[in-house]
């Protein structure tokens, strides 16, 4: 890990160039939307991976951070006319602080217990927002329309700028997580994942490193939240704070390969188009069909390829050599 072969670098460059060229070639609104959703969930999967994949903190509460990001920038914009880009940073910081606040009491929880605590936390956040008048409660908020520009983080005539912004966010997230995992932080998180005892014995403050992981993961997830608010221009608890979002993030990472940098991206490229297209093909009659397909995929993966699709690909890659 950490070093790339020329072939790998070439592959990443080709993929990145192809993604940059995509909107120039494919003109439809819907394919662009699907790609944006793919990037967004890939980004959240990468952020989740820092917790679940590297440190065995199986968070099922990422929707809370997503929602905090979305609501913070929106409230700041609506009530105080704060530029969404600043809102993005403030939302990220708020989410990171919330993550720290929830992370400290949970610092000794492992495995299932951490998962349960994270669900409880996210549900509390959702219920609060559902009843909190200041943030629009259950009716939600409609973002004020600003003139179309990158500075305003808002575009009306085309989705393409959103596409590039989200792609940039995804690349940034991958870089941040890659940098963390090939340095001390990654080594320490993997030690903590193995055993708290072992980590302590090696001088690692597992409370501190777990907090770092939660805060980085929360910040990145909140960035995706702000993006989503600016993209959809409407916000209510049902669209950003619900459990299925958290579950989707976990599935993306697990399917692709938890504990690998590119795993969640692979997971997202399989799951998100699947979910978006089944939704369109089957309409309202098909609600839930994507979830059924997920279920089957997840069962197959966990039974036959616990390391996810990425694990499968690297295994094939090794055999080919």
């Amino acid at each position: 890990m950490g070093k790339f072969t020329p072939r790998q670098i070439a592959l990443y460059v080709v993929v990145l160039v192809a993604l940059i060229a995509f909107p120039l070639v494919v003109k439809g609104t819907f394919p662009t939307h699907v790609m944006i959703m793919f990037f967004m969930f890939a980004m959240m999967g990468v952020a989740w991976n820092l917790l679940g994949g590297y440190a065995a903190m199986f968070s099922f509460g990422q929707a809370a951070f997503f929602g905090i990001g979305a609501y913070t920038s929106t409230i700041l914009l609506m009530n105080y006319h704060v530029n969404p880009w600043i809102g993005l940073v403030v939302g990220g910081i708020l989410a990171a602080l919330t993550g720290a606040a929830i992370g400290i009491p949970c610092s000794n929880l492992r495995g299932h217990y951490f998962a349960i605590a994270s669900i409880a936390f996210a549900e509390i956040v959702r219920i609060c927002f559902n009843n909190w008048k200041f943030v629009g409660a259950a009716e939600g908020l409609s973002l004020p329309l600003l003139p179309e520009s990158l500075g305003n983080f808002m575009f009306h005539s085309t989705k393409v700028p959103y596409y590039y912004i989200m792609l940039a966010f995804l690349v940034l997230s991958i870089f941040i997580c890659w940098y963390i995992t090939v340095n001390r932080g990654g080594f320490y998180l993997r030690a903590i994942k193995e055993s708290h005892e072992l980590a302590k014995g090696m001088g690692i403050s597992f409370v501190r490193y777990r907090l770092y992981a939660i805060m980085v993961s929360a910040f990145l997830t909140a960035m995706a939240g702000t993006f989503y608010a600016q993209y959809i221009l409407y916000l209510d608890p049902e669209s950003v704070l619900i459990l299925p979002i958290s579950v989707q993030v976990v599935l993306v990472a697990m399917l692709g390969g938890a504990g690998t940098i590119m795993g969640p991206v692979i997971g997202a490229v399989i799951l998100i188009p699947l979910s978006e297209y089944t939704r369109v093909w089957l309409g309202t009659k098909g609600t839930g069909v994507d979830m059924m397909l997920y279920g089957v995929l997840i069962m197959l993966i966990s039974a036959y390829q616990p390391k996810g699709v990425w694990g499968l690909l690297t295994a094939i890659g090794k055999r080919a050599k």
Partner: peptide, 17 residues
């Protein structure tokens, strides 16, 4: 106790960090 998804070198690096 060793870190099971790490190589021997990576295990020692974790200590050295």
């Amino acid at each position: 106790q060793v870190i099971s998804d790490m190589t021997v070198l990576e295990n020692v690096m974790t200590g050295t960090y």
